[in-house]
């Protein structure tokens, strides 16, 4: 029983790191209608920036994470205002191509700036160590991830449900022509939403720095899982992304424990079943 409880908790921490990246992906799709292939690259940029501020320049870890988010925000703004904005009136295929182009550019930029070899900073002291859970040492780091994931969930809920900006965003997502007609500055809404999405991706990357290596291409691993999660939960649904992350994270952890041979298939099987039974995803509405 302890084993099942412990593995489940590991699954929750895995889910929370998946949640951070899938939340940004689904927000951007929900409001802008853009499937952002470059979301994984923003995750990678977050990891490299945190490594640079924390590992190279010696800033405190928390400040390094915040600075990484700031860099991702600027990058997101440039991507949306400088490029994506000009393609909204065109077919989705053009946006896909553009965001794929961002992937290639950012991957190469990272190689040029930091080199092709992986980077890894020291583990911040406050995240080192473990505490006993179900009779086994559970890392402080994983506990921290769970806490951050829940806080981000609450924060996003509050942002979209309780603030003026959230109401404007929801109105725009629901009917952008109508929002425009009643005086909402739609381009500004799009920019801010893209920036929030970019910051969430970077947060996922930056928070992983203490244990994971920063290397070109690390975003590719995350983006595949994030897409699976958003398909399961429903593209554009934050609740769906959170639930999808929990499903994928926990089942992946149990799959590793009980069915190590098939573990990799689990996420894809769930996605396939959801697509067959409820193609719009668990929480998305069909327009």
């Amino acid at each position: 029983m302890d084993t099942i409880g412990y593995q489940g908790l590991i699954g929750v921490s895995l889910a929370m790191s998946l949640w951070l990246i899938s939340a940004g992906l689904t927000i951007i799709f929900g409001v802008l209608g853009v499937i952002n292939f470059a979301h994984g690259s923003l995750f990678m940029v977050g990891a490299y920036m945190a490594y640079t501020f924390y590992g190279l320049l010696g800033f405190p870890f928390g400040l390094s994470v915040l600075l990484s988010l700031a860099v991702a925000a600027v990058l997101g703004l440039i991507m949306e205002r400088g490029f994506l904005r000009h393609l909204y009136h065109l077919d989705h295929a053009y946006q896909l191509l553009l965001t794929f182009g961002f992937v290639l550019v950012l991957d190469d930029a990272v190689k040029i700036i930091w080199g092709g070899v992986f980077k890894i900073p020291p583990i911040p002291r406050f995240l080192d160590g473990a505490w006993p859970v179900f009779g086994r040492p559970f890392p402080v780091y994983n506990t921290f991830l769970i806490a951050i994931g829940i806080l981000v969930g609450i924060g996003l809920w509050a942002l979209f449900e309780k603030t003026w900006w959230g109401r404007v965003v929801r109105a725009t997502a629901s009917d952008r022509e109508m929002a425009n007609a009643i005086g909402v500055n739609v381009p500004w809404v799009f920019s801010t939403v893209f920036v929030v999405g970019a910051m969430l991706a970077a947060l996922g990357g930056a928070l992983g720095t203490p244990i994971r290596v920063a290397a070109p291409g690390i975003g590719a691993a995350m983006i595949i899982q994030a897409f699976i999660i958003t398909v399961i939960g429903g593209l554009g649904s934050l609740k769906g992304a959170f639930t999808g992350s929990l499903i994928v994270g926990i089942l992946s952890a149990y799959g590793t424990l009980f069915f190590p041979i098939f573990e990799l298939f689990f996420s894809f099987v769930i996605m396939t079943v959801v697509l067959l039974v409820r193609p719009q995803g668990l929480f998305a509405h069909v327009n």
Binding site: T3, Y6, Q7, I10, G11, S13, L14, S17, R136, P139, N142, G208, R212, G217, I218, A220, A221, M222, S252, A253, T256, L257, P260, I261, E263, L264
Partner: peptide, 21 residues
Amino acid sequence: GAAWAPFLTLDFSSQIAAVMA
């Protein structure tokens, strides 16, 4: 015990937890 991690694994905690069990 055996737990398997594909290329580009960024989080090994479930593999570690599974074999330590």
